[in-house]
């Protein structure tokens, strides 16, 4: 799969490195195969691109790398969906709303975390019912929801 998005700079992702989302994403149940492509000079941000619909791409990041006190408890249902029963294997990502022109800071959405199981290369998106998991503003912006402690 060649990723034509400007942030991916024509990266080529082998079929074997795609991730399978059997349930799709929330509100987008028909997309099942995704690539996660590093964005140049923007670690830990990644471009999440659909292999089913090349026009679908968004930026994601691991909340744990950006927020010191982020935690998400995975349920047995989550682990079953991922085909993995070792929670320590799981990687958690959150979608990022990049800043529009002006002073509005970027935002991280903790309400709908994306959970990846590297061993099975499966992913799911879940709803976090943790009260503190709303949409938060990054890099010194004021919180748009609640704080992100957990």
């Amino acid at each position: 799969m060649r990723v034509e998005h400007p942030l991916a700079k024509g990266a080529v992702v082998p079929e074997a490195e795609l991730w399978d989302f059997p349930e799709g994403l929330i509100g987008v149940p028909d997309l099942h195969k995704f690539a996660f492509v590093p964005i140049a000079n923007a670690d830990p941000f990644l471009l999440m691109c659909s292999a089913d619909n090349p026009a679908f791409a968004l930026v994601v990041a691991p909340p744990g790398a950006l927020l010191s006190d982020y935690a998400l408890e995975l349920s047995a249902q989550d682990l079953q969906a991922l085909g993995s029963f070792d929670a320590d294997d799981a990687r958690i990502l959150a979608t990022v709303i990049l800043p529009a022109a002006g002073d509005r800071p970027p935002q991280l959405n903790l309400r709908g975390p994306i959970i990846l199981a590297p061993r099975t290369r499966r992913g799911v998106q879940r709803v976090s019912h943790e009260e503190s998991h709303g949409t938060i503003e990054l890099f010194g912006g004021a919180s748009a929801g609640a704080s992100c402690s957990s």
């Binding site: 942030l7 930026v59 990022v96 990049l98 935002q107 309400r111």
Partner: peptide
């Protein structure tokens, strides 16, 4: 969540937005 996903998707389509981040 759906609104945030759509906002994330729309923002990623702006080539200058990542630079702003």
């Amino acid at each position: 969540i759906i609104a945030a996903m759509e906002a994330a998707r729309a923002s990623a389509a702006d080539p200058a937005a990542m630079k702003r981040l």
